[in-house]
Computed example of a mutant assay.
Amino acid sequence: MRLDKLISSELEYFEPILKRQKEATQEAREAWRKETVAQRLERVSLETYDLCKGTVSQGLFKGLQLNRDAWWGKSDLGAQCLGLYEKEILDFISARAPFDTFLDIGAADGYYAVGLLHAKKTRKAICFEISEEGQRAINENWQRNEKPGELEVHGEATKKNIASVASNLTDKTLVLIDIEGFEFQLLSKKVIAALGKCTVIIEIHNWIDGFENKYPDLLKNLDRFFDIAIISPSERNTQSIELLRSYTDDNRLLVSSERRPCLMRFLHLTPKKDR
């Protein structure tokens, strides 16, 4: 490379880094030193959201607009904007989409439901979210993204209403279950049978009482209708994201953190062909 081009490219590389250094006042530095990890994570997440102008910049949901005043958690916004949030699930869905219907049990603020509708990876999304604030957030996010596809938003998921909805689903349905441990109560033999034709993803939450007994029982019941596989965790390569090159090492890694208490388990369920 010619020297003048090298100098020009190097100055361009360092431009955002130098800009950040100049903007970091002594007062700001003192405040950062007193932050808890949770406070720093939220600050970095929101800064990343602002740099992305509130829009997912890459991945399956590219172009999806997110609400800065998130209901479920502002600390996830940065990772969502970068396409890193629950990357293993996004990669899994991307490899198997499109679907006729997406059933989202524990829909939070509608990140997946609205994202899949926006990306035209499903025609219809059916959400169950126990929080009324969450239900409002799902509708607001759908409207923010110009109401793509068809959306239904319901309240608490129960054995009765999930079995009822499942009776009308086709084998081109994706079901995502993320209900903070309530999966062990919701997924009765009847509900599992009703979902038996669908592709299902379940996040397993291990902090409930009696997990050592409840989890094997759930696996045995699921095995009657599904082939069970583990979704392997995906690496989050933050070094390759140009937007983050001015971040400190800690902050660059922190923006991809999902604040989980351990390496979580996601199950992939495929309907058995020989049952």
Results as ranks from 00 to 15, higher is better:
114 V>Q: 01
100 D>Q: 11
126 I>N: 00
114 V>C: 08
151 L>E: 01
150 E>D: 14
140 E>M: 14
141 N>E: 07
146 E>G: 09
158 T>I: 06
163 A>P: 12
136 R>T: 05
157 A>L: 02
109 D>C: 10
96 R>Y: 13
139 N>K: 11
158 T>Q: 03
95 A>W: 10
117 L>S: 04
122 T>S: 11
101 T>S: 11
144 R>D: 04
113 A>D: 04
119 A>G: 08
91 D>L: 13
104 D>R: 03
117 L>C: 08
98 P>R: 10
127 C>M: 04
140 E>C: 05
95 A>S: 12
88 E>N: 13
135 Q>N: 12
148 P>S: 08
140 E>V: 04
120 K>P: 05
151 L>T: 00
134 G>P: 05
102 F>R: 02
87 K>C: 07
158 T>L: 07
133 E>W: 09
156 E>R: 15
152 E>H: 13
101 T>Y: 02
103 L>F: 08
124 K>V: 13
125 A>G: 08
102 F>W: 05
144 R>H: 13
110 G>K: 00
153 V>E: 01
106 G>H: 01
101 T>N: 06
92 F>L: 09
110 G>E: 02
91 D>S: 12
134 G>E: 01
124 K>T: 10
126 I>C: 02
119 A>Q: 05
141 N>L: 10
105 I>V: 10
97 A>G: 09
126 I>S: 00
115 G>D: 05
106 G>P: 02
116 L>C: 12
134 G>A: 05
89 I>A: 15
149 G>V: 00
109 D>A: 07
156 E>Q: 14
162 I>T: 13
165 V>P: 01
120 K>Y: 12
125 A>E: 06
142 W>F: 04
151 L>I: 02
97 A>T: 10
160 K>Y: 15
104 D>Y: 01
152 E>T: 11
96 R>H: 13
124 K>I: 15
97 A>E: 10
152 E>C: 12
153 V>H: 00
112 Y>M: 13
130 I>S: 08
164 S>Q: 14
155 G>T: 10
154 H>C: 07
155 G>C: 06
89 I>C: 11
134 G>W: 00
99 F>C: 08
163 A>T: 11
123 R>G: 13
127 C>H: 01
106 G>V: 02
89 I>H: 12
117 L>F: 15
155 G>K: 03
119 A>P: 03
106 G>I: 03
108 A>D: 07
108 A>L: 04
162 I>Y: 03
126 I>E: 00
115 G>F: 03
158 T>K: 04
101 T>G: 03
103 L>R: 01
148 P>W: 05
107 A>R: 02
132 E>P: 07
108 A>H: 07
152 E>A: 09
102 F>N: 01
86 E>N: 15
164 S>R: 09
98 P>W: 09
159 K>D: 11
149 G>C: 04
154 H>L: 12
151 L>F: 02
